[in-house]
Design a protein around this nucleic acid. Structure first.
Lengths: 202, 202
DNA sequence: TTAAATTTTAACCATTTGGTTAAAAATAAT
DNA sequence: ATTATTTTTAACCAAATGGTTAAAATTTAA
């Protein structure tokens, strides 16, 4: 008879997610998580055993959130530019919905690169990158795009999509943008980034 | 008679810098800073009063480190593409030398955006961006480049230069690169990024 | 309805943390 | 050489932290 209350568990998880994203692993407090979830701290331990275990669950989920759709789109049987357009669009939409996600994932990754590296390696990107490279090589041969590696193109796409979310305070400060102006700039990037990528390939 | 030992102060500062970059504000420990500097923890307080004060000094210096040269280059009387080439080259060289810098600065910025925003606003970028926009407009009028705003071009440049450093563990994991391959990829980006930027402008 | 199992709680614990105090040690001034 | 000042140290402190324990409360099974 196993009766863990799924609702309690979920409330704690969602609260933990919010606080870990705001404060990171080192800055988050189990007491705060418990308080904001509306339960007693011992209960958090009853359900999740330890802070590290709770964090692992949250992190796994957020990393998956960051990369979800990427593999699917890159595997899809689409023309190259349509594929790029979809990646850009979905990346920016995803991150507009979860703006704190990349800095959270990448910061925790930089804290503990080896442990997390093992998890990242499980994401089946290598096979997908091989297919992507073949597609790119085919387009190069056709003369439709300049010579570029799948790796560099992938990095360019992710750089142009993700960085403005990571660097939100810096960009707002340096370019003197208020929230509204910043969000307008992000929205504009859906087409700007895709256009940039098209131009640099042609 | 003021006799703070400059060497002691510097040793503590450099040690603090290293540990704050590794662990962040929340994760760094004053005892660790003292131990690694080779002094007693009370001494760290004697010189720097508190953890927050010490962190502020370190952060101010690192933020300046990240943005130094940027304003100078953007103000320089150089042709547009030469200017872009210099920004890219110096950015990548700087970050190759201090690879943990951007994730440190941007992560702490995301923790405390309002406080840090005031500091960022003091960097005289707005005037420089105006000049940059004028230069871009002039090139657009001449027909040498496509229509783009200084803001978006600036964001593209910084995205393409900085993101691969922030996302080091992710890139290594996803693309199955060892350290050597990663560094080779970074070195290659000096020309790749510049070329990409040129293509997207033309 | 009672007993068993599970969830939730309040209280507690050992350790860690940033910071303080006062004295010892070192340096500078007279 | 002595005194004054500054630096450095060891010891200490209160609060915070992640985690544990045992009992109360609730739910489920018989």
């Amino acid at each position: 008879m196993k009766r863990k209350d799924k609702n309690t568990e979920q409330v704690i998880l969602q609260t933990a997610r919010k606080i870990f994203i705001q404060k990171g692993l080192a800055g988050a407090r189990m007491q705060d998580i418990a308080d904001q979830a509306g339960f007693n701290k011992a209960l958090v331990h009853y359900y999740f055993t330890s802070k590290d275990k709770l964090f692992d669950l949250v992190f796994e989920h957020e990393m998956s959130n960051l990369f979800s759709n990427l593999v699917a789109i890159m595997s899809a049987d689409l023309p190259l530019f349509e594929k790029i357009e979809n990646i850009v669009s979905l990346d920016i939409d995803r991150l507009t919905q979860f703006p704190g996600l990349p800095i959270f994932v990448l910061n925790e990754m930089s804290r503990n690169p080896d442990v997390i590296l093992k998890r990242v390696k499980k994401i089946p990107v290598q096979k997908v990158m091989n297919g992507f490279q073949k597609q790119i090589n085919s387009e190069i041969k056709k003369g439709t795009i300049k010579k570029i590696t799948a790796d560099q193109l992938f990095i360019n796409i992710q750089s142009l999509c993700i960085f403005p979310f990571i660097a939100r305070p810096m960009i707002k400060g340096l370019l003197q943008l208020d929230d509204k102006a910043y969000l307008a700039m992000i929205e504009k990037r859906k087409t700007e980034v895709f256009q940039s990528l098209v131009y640099q390939c042609h």
